[in-house]
Simulated assay, not measured.
Amino acid sequence: MEKNKTGKYFKYAIGEIVLVVIGILIALSINNWNENRKLHNVELSLLLEVKSNLEDTLNSFKNDTLINRNSILQFRKIEHYIDEDLPYNTELNTAFGWIGDWQSPYPITTAYTTLKTKGLDIISNLPLRNKIVSMYEFELIILINDYDKGEWSNLQAFNPFIYKHISSRNSKQAAAPNDFESLKINKQFSNILGRIISQREAGLFFYKEAMISIEELIKHLDKELIFRK
């Protein structure tokens, strides 16, 4: 009888252990599911933020290109007056006011900064992750380094001449040459104007390339967000 009781108790103990192990495994599984769900929600939230930042950046870049393109038209107007040897007209005040001024690219990177802090591997879609990294670590950097730094370099080089020969007016972005007739035959001024136009036109190209890439990345983000919902 004692042996039978011992056998039953042993089987009961084994059963209890099995139930405890199963309970632990179920709890771990639920916990893992919850953690994965949390990571999933964080990932989708970050992707939405990245998309929002890119949309705002795209709108900002579109505005920048409109303004920079207009500045080129203004500088071409000065060239026209010089080429045709026309007398000064106050319509050139705006054009001269734009010399030494331009729209710099300011991409919004708050979401990407957060993403790097949390770890880039939180983005489970590897090709999408690589596209996001390429955008912020390469393509936008090209726009800033190859275009905007060139504008700043021109400004530093040309400022002494500009301050000497061109005076600001009271209204915003208005200026006029101290002596337009002498400026028309000044080769240094012609070279400066040509350099500014060339740099600004290069900027439009870099802006265009960046905007195309941003639009494509936004489309990829849209697909991912729709698929993951």
Results as ranks from 00 to 15, higher is better:
Lys38Ile: 06
Glu49Gly: 03
Phe61Gln: 06
Leu58Asp: 07
Asn63Gln: 14
Asn70His: 12
Glu49Val: 02
Leu46Asn: 02
Glu35Leu: 15
Asn36Ile: 05
Arg69Ile: 00
Arg69Thr: 09
Leu47Thr: 08
Ser45Met: 04
Leu66Tyr: 12
Glu49Thr: 05
Asp56Pro: 01
Asp56Gly: 00
Leu39Asn: 13
Ser52Phe: 00
Asp56Leu: 04
Asp64Phe: 07
Ser45Trp: 00
Glu55Leu: 09
Glu35Ser: 12
Val50His: 02
Asn63Tyr: 13
Asn34Phe: 14
Lys51Ser: 12
Asn70Arg: 15
Phe61Asp: 00
Thr65Pro: 02
Asn36His: 09
Arg37Asp: 11
Glu49Tyr: 05
Lys62Asp: 07
Leu46Gln: 05
Val42Ala: 08
Asn70Leu: 15
Glu35Phe: 11
Arg37Gln: 11
Glu43His: 07
Asn34Glu: 09
Leu39Trp: 00
Asp64Ala: 03
Leu58His: 14
Asn34Ala: 15
Lys51Trp: 01
Thr65Cys: 06
Leu44Asp: 08
Asn34Thr: 10
Leu39Ala: 08
Leu54Phe: 04
Asn70Gly: 12
Ile67Trp: 10
Asn70Asp: 13
Ile67Ser: 10
Ser60Lys: 00
Leu47Ala: 05
Asn53His: 04
Asn34Ser: 08
Lys62Ser: 09
Arg69Trp: 11
Arg69Asn: 11
Glu43Lys: 07
Asn34Gln: 10
Thr57Met: 02
Leu44Asn: 14
Lys51Asp: 05
Ile67Asn: 10
Lys62Thr: 09
Leu66Arg: 07
Glu43Ile: 01
Leu39Asp: 12
Asn59Ile: 07
Phe61Gly: 00
Asn68Met: 10
Asn59Met: 05
Ile67Thr: 12
Ile67Phe: 14
Asn36Tyr: 03
His40Ala: 10
Leu54Arg: 06
Asn68Pro: 12
Lys51Glu: 06
Leu47Gln: 10
Lys51Ala: 02
His40Lys: 13
Val42Pro: 04
Asp56Ile: 03
Asn59Leu: 14
Leu54His: 02
Asn36Asp: 13
Arg69Glu: 15
Ile67Tyr: 12
Glu35His: 06
Leu66Thr: 06
Asn53Asp: 15
His40Asn: 15
Phe61Ser: 03
Asp64Arg: 08
Leu44Tyr: 03
Asn70Val: 00
Arg69Tyr: 12
Ser52Lys: 10
Leu47Tyr: 00
Asn63Val: 12
Val50Pro: 03
Leu47Val: 03
Val42Arg: 13
Lys38Asp: 08
Asp56Arg: 07
